[in-house]
């Protein structure tokens, strides 16, 4: 695993109560470090999105605080935080509105006050990274769902935030499209972006993230490397999360000393290694 940098986002004693009635977060402490690739997991209603919306100020804590680069963001405008923390919403339709994909990607950079040349540079980079250049002059609203999803990610990426929060980016995508998209996201992480991924897809979590944070009823019940989290079958079961089958299989074959495999590739490698040793 790569060495991680300093703290990018830090939640301290974070509590959130909706409308003074519904307690959604009950004291979350979390330190997200530069270069982290985090899977934020938990069953529906466990507080994943509520927690993530605090990271860019869309929600404000009922008590506790959120720091970005060590500074408390209380009172800081969301549009200012957007330079550092990008948030891609679950439904791309809630985001796209421009007449062309190119303009859609330029919207964020323009909002944060970048110059024309820099905007063009970033838009071209975003179009290339997400492989949507051929749609650059199409209206995003009429493109297929998978492309609209890519456009929504590219549009946030074009702002080059330090951290990117992705809320269920693979929902509604087939496996191949999901993999393609996640490979791009992995590339962003390798380029230095901190990634927080909210998802119910444990295969994606196992295969791509390096750290997993498990939420249950508004509290963090596990925060460890993804391998450690995936290995703790009982803890996962208590939150109704089923690890990917390949994780279960490698655990069931523990007597062979395979270790916990997070992907089929890892499993095959460990299996052949064990077989060769025999």
């Amino acid at each position: 695993m790569r060495a991680l940098g300093d703290s990018v986002i830090r939640a301290v004693g974070l509590e959130h109560v909706y409308d003074g009635e519904v307690a959604a977060l009950g004291g979350v402490d979390l330190d997200i470090r530069r270069g982290d690739f985090i899977g934020l997991i938990g069953q529906n209603g466990s507080g994943k999105t509520t927690l993530a919306k605090h990271f860019n100020g869309l929600l404000r804590p009922t008590s506790g605080r959120v720091e970005i680069d060590g500074a408390d963001i209380a009172g800081v405008n969301v549009s200012r935080i957007a330079r550092k923390v990008g948030f891609v919403f679950q439904n791309p339709d809630h985001q796209v509105f421009c007449p062309t994909v190119r303009e859609e990607c330029a919207f964020g950079p323009r909002n944060i006050g970048l110059g024309k040349d820099e905007i063009e540079l970033r838009v071209e980079d975003a179009l290339a990274r997400f492989k949507i250049r051929k749609y650059a002059d199409h209206p995003p609203a009429v493109l297929g769902f998978g492309i609209r999803r890519k456009v929504s990610l590219a549009a946030v990426y074009a702002m080059r935030p330090d951290a990117l929060i992705l809320d269920e980016p693979t929902v509604g995508l087939d496996w191949k499209s999901s993999m393609e998209l996640m490979e791009v996201v992995r590339g962003l992480n390798e380029a230095g972006h901190t990634i927080v991924l909210i998802t119910h897809d444990m295969r994606i979590v196992a295969e791509f993230t390096t750290r997993s944070v498990v939420l249950k009823a508004g509290r963090v019940i596990m925060d460890a490397t993804t391998r450690e989290v995936m290995s703790d079958r009982d803890a996962l079961r208590s939150t109704q999360i089923a690890p990917p089958q390949v994780v279960d299989l490698s655990r069931d074959l523990e007597p062979l000393g395979l270790g916990v495999a997070l992907s089929s590739g890892e499993f095959a490698e460990a299996y052949y290694r064990a077989a060769a040793a025999v």
Partner: peptide
């Protein structure tokens, strides 16, 4: 949701 999504892209409504 749309307001949140656009604010998260740096749109300042005020």
């Amino acid at each position: 949701m749309v307001i949140d999504a656009q604010r998260a892209r740096g749109l300042d409504l005020k």
